[in-house]
């Protein structure tokens, strides 16, 4: 049993932040790693990336968008409530070495993970440029935290209600044109965004890492549900990832695989309402 210490609503209640008491995991988890959460006895196992940790307080932070039954259920939890299972840390941590200038691109809830990775890159002495995007002003999360970490930060919104109008690829393209010292681009967000980022960086031949979020069950390499095609090989996101070289990832297959359970997701939600 893992207790929720703090609960915070973001983006008008569509994105929730939990601080969970998990001292063993907090001690070990690194940027880019994730945990598997099972809310109750009948719950499903869902992977959630750790957005932050406090080793001394024994707390890990998860931030998730309410999309399906399990996340809707989690949203209804209050401070002090218990979560049945939290397993982790899982996956390989992001390799945040000192390499020079890096661009961190994040979209939507992906910013939650991105800011943890960005922090790691900043701590190892890199010059970090942050680009974060959202649908509109209300959906923007963790702007202050990102601002604190990044040396430069650009914010875009799809409707122009805040920051620059447009997608994250616009300022990214600009940076890639103007700056020649960029060593790495890290993109975390919706698959379509990552796909477009990779399209752009491929032109400039700048190494791009992406963090994938396929469907997962056990998260320990057992089920193969999270398989992704990377450099034409079957790789498992949970043990080989979740971060992969963006140039090699077959994004279309990932999009298809992630949309497999949309109908069941709806049925499940309806069942829980009934």
């Amino acid at each position: 049993m893992f207790q929720i210490i703090r609960r915070q609503e973001m983006a008008q209640g569509t994105i929730i932040r939990f601080d969970i008491n998990a001292p063993k995991i907090a001690k070990k988890v690194k940027a880019g790693q994730f945990v598997i959460v099972r809310v109750n006895e009948t719950g499903e196992r869902i992977p959630l990336t750790v957005a932050d940790k406090d080793e001394f307080a024994g707390i890990i932070t998860i931030i998730f968008q309410v999309v399906g039954k399990t996340t809707a259920l989690m949203r209804s939890l209050k401070e002090g409530d218990m979560i049945r299972d939290v397993v982790g840390p899982l996956g390989r941590p992001a390799e945040a070495e000192k390499i020079g200038t890096v661009i961190m691109v994040g979209g939507g809830t992906g910013v939650a993970i991105l800011h943890h990775v960005a922090k790691a890159f900043k701590e190892s002495g890199n010059y970090v440029i942050g680009i974060m995007g959202a649908r509109d002003r209300d959906m923007l999360i963790l702007e202050n935290e990102m601002d604190h970490i990044c040396d430069e930060l650009v914010v875009t919104t799809d409707d122009g209600s805040y920051g620059q109008l447009g997608f994250v690829t616009d300022p990214l393209g600009k940076y890639l044109e103007e700056r020649y010292d960029i060593k790495l681009v890290y993109a975390i967000g919706p698959i379509v965004m990552m796909k477009n980022v990779v399209k752009l960086t491929k032109k400039h031949n700048i190494k791009t890492m992406v963090s994938l979020n396929p469907i997962m069950i056990d998260g320990t390499g057992m089920c193969g549900g999270c398989r992704v095609r990377v450099s034409n090989e079957t790789r498992f996101c949970c043990v080989d990832g979740p971060d992969f070289d963006g140039f090699e990832v077959d994004f279309d297959e990932l999009i298809n695989r992630n949309s497999l359970y949309l109908k069941e997701e709806k049925d499940s939600l309806l069942f829980s309402i009934r």
């Binding site: 009948t42 499903e44 196992r45 049925d267 499940s268």
Partner: peptide, 8 residues
Amino acid sequence: FPEYDTPM
């Protein structure tokens, strides 16, 4: 399913 959340 759907008593248990994992889709069948």
